[in-house]
């Protein structure tokens, strides 16, 4: 399979700060990859290395088999500007047409604006758009050149639910048409909804890299919450947390656990059972003191 973008042992320092520490990542054609990490983890730096906005301090970055600073390598790439960065005096159609002018076969402006719910705003100056409209415009221009690879940095931050789902649909349609996406997000829900592959970055290193199911399986499948005085030793509990009389238990089989609690006559209340989400896997992976690199391509590794 064609690798559209790749970093090999990429390290990036800002003075004494190591933002990215030996990250190797392949982005094969057709993948929808979600990049997760707490603030300051190195996601944005990684997303700046791929289009050549920054150079790695050491290691290499490849884009479409070449050097990303070579303008020709960026012909099949689509990126999002920051919403605060749109030239305020340019009209919506002008922003789109300016970007479109860089590509051989751009999507016609009316079609693109319709796809991203911006029809009717063509003549508005971008400085006069609402936050959500600006966000949609920045995402739209990433797609105007019919790119093969799109880098989306926090595409739905600040959007309401409806607009977010509309944008997800646009990203899915693009992906179903064969497009490749690398996406960062604050919303784990977004990554769960879209991504096939999840890469968790923390403190500049890859903590986990695998399918959504792989990464989710890093924590036991169910989380049981309850209030009770002291709990005895319970079978099947893989991890637990306690705060006063509140307990959080992780287990593969919540039914068996609840049965135990009942038969042992434990006076619990406020029972809650939930499927462990990506969020919990993410929190477990990026908890302070977590040093293990958990999963690379579905394999547990150290």
């Amino acid at each position: 399979m064609e690798i559209l973008a790749r970093t090999v042992q990429a390290t990036r320092c800002y003075g004494p700060v190591i933002a990215l520490d030996g990250v190797s990542l392949d982005v094969p054609a057709g993948q929808l990859l979600g990049l997760l990490g707490p603030n300051g983890a190195g996601k944005t730096t990684l997303l700046q290395l791929l289009p050549g906005l920054r150079r790695p301090t050491s290691g290499t970055v490849e884009l479409f088999g070449g050097y990303p600073r070579d303008a020709a390598r960026r012909r099949r790439l689509g990126c999002t500007p920051q919403e605060t960065g749109l030239p305020p005096t340019l009209r919506v159609h002008e922003v789109v047409e300016f970007v479109a002018g860089h590509f051989a076969d751009p999507v016609p402006t009316p079609e693109l604006l319709e796809q991203f719910g911006l029809t009717g705003l063509e003549r508005r100056q971008s400085g006069g758009l609402s936050g959500g409209q600006k966000r949609r415009l920045t995402v739209a221009v990433a797609f105007v050149g019919r790119p093969d690879l799109v880098l989306l940095d926090e595409p739905t931050t600040g959007l309401d639910v409806e607009a977010r789902h509309a944008l997800w649909d646009a990203v899915r349609r693009y992906h179903q048409g064969g497009g490749t996406v690398v996406l960062t997000s604050h919303y784990l829900e977004e990554v769960e909804a879209l991504a096939e592959r999840v890469v968790v970055i923390d403190q500049g290193r890859v903590r986990a890299d695998g399918t959504l199911a792989d990464v989710r399986s890093l924590v036991p499948a169910r989380r049981v919450r309850l209030r009770a005085p002291d709990l005895p030793e319970l079978a099947g509990v893989e991890r637990s947390n306690r705060d006063g009389d509140r307990h959080e238990l992780w287990t593969a089989d919540s039914d068996a656990l609840v049965r135990q609690l009942v038969t042992m006559g434990i006076p619990f209340r406020d029972l809650e059972v939930a499927t462990a989400s990506l969020e919990e896997a993410f929190l477990a992976l990026t908890a302070p003191g977590t040093q293990t690199v958990a999963l690379i391509d579905g394999e547990l590794a150290r």
């Binding site: 289009p51 990126c79 960065g85 590509f103």
Partner: peptide
């Protein structure tokens, strides 16, 4: 000072 300038560097133009 504007992020737009950085964005134009991701476009296929030298």
């Amino acid at each position: 000072a504007l992020p737009w300038d950085g964005y134009t560097r991701t476009l296929p133009a030298g």
